[in-house]
């Protein structure tokens, strides 16, 4: 591993946000998943989103990458306030994500799964691909090299050709991270990437997330329940409860916040 790049203090930086969420509300019928939430994600930071189950964290990521369309409020990404957008458009603009429940392509190998992450980079059309040789092959090899770099990075060389359905849950989560990284995203949304993992797997995953952030410069939004992990990894934390934002700041600030303590200890307030 390379030495980590010296890090400017992102938490106190005033640089323009990569993404800002302004007064978003989202409801399903009568269920209010998100109520009037605003926060931003700065370029280069790891932004944690925490909160009890059902707080609206996953729904928030779904809004950011275009799965859900909030009924009120707006999302500004790379300086553009965006209209209702489809997930594939978000992907084309550099937003990648992983899911709380692994969402891999079960019938395909590790290699093919990660290669699908390169789909947006493919320029050669159907006819070239049918011919295979020539420019299409050159492009395939180019993408294969990029994917092999990720396989190397995530230390999953030995499972390259194995159908992902046969892998352990921990490895599947790793492959899913690989597929997201293959997109070379500007903003990576990770929904509980360490849930259900043992300590060793968690440590590996932490290392990969930090490396992706420091070495590849990827901005990351991270939903995580393990407070130790959140405190270690993140530059800033936003806390949701019952769909509302109850705190926002550095890990140290958030940890001291009374509302947060109450929410996590379940003290009525």
């Amino acid at each position: 591993m390379n030495a980590p790049i010296p890090r400017r203090d992102i938490a106190s930086s005033t640089s323009a946000p990569l993404l800002s969420v302004d007064n978003i509300s989202l409801a399903f019928g009568g269920v209010k998943a998100i109520t009037d939430v605003s926060f931003d994600i700065r370029k280069g930071e790891i932004r944690a989103i925490i909160g009890p189950n059902g707080a609206g964290k996953t729904s928030m990521l779904n809004c950011i990458n275009g799965f859900y369309h909030p009924q009120a409020g707006s999302i500004t990404y790379k300086g553009n306030k965006r209209e209702r957008m489809r997930p594939h458009v978000a992907a084309a603009q550099g937003i990648a994500r992983t899911f709380q429940n692994v969402a891999l392509f079960k019938g395909m190998s590790t290699l093919d799964n990660i290669l699908t992450g390169r789909s947006l980079k493919v320029r050669r059309g159907l006819l070239w691909q049918a011919i295979w040789f020539g420019p299409a092959l050159a492009e395939q090899i180019e993408n294969r090299i990029a994917v092999e770099r990720i396989i190397d990075f995530l230390e999953i060389e030995s499972i390259r050709k194995i159908p992902v359905g046969k892998l352990s849950y921990g490895l599947q989560k790793r492959v899913e991270l690989g597929r997201a990284l293959a997109m070379e995203p500007d903003l990576l949304l990770l929904d509980e990437p360490m849930a259900g993992m043992n300590t060793e797997e968690k440590e590996d995953m932490c290392r990969f997330i930090l490396d992706a952030n420091r070495r590849l410069g990827t901005t990351i939004a991270l939903i995580e329940h393990d407070m130790g992990v959140v405190m270690d990894l993140s530059d800033r934390v936003v806390v949701l409860e019952y769909g509302r934002k109850i705190a926002d700041g550095t890990p140290a600030e958030v940890k001291r916040n009374e509302k947060v303590i109450a929410a996590y200890l379940g003290v009525p307030h």
Binding site: F67, R97, L104
Partner: peptide, 9 residues
Amino acid sequence: MDLAAEIIG
């Protein structure tokens, strides 16, 4: 998984 396909573009 068509939903996952869509999020990778």
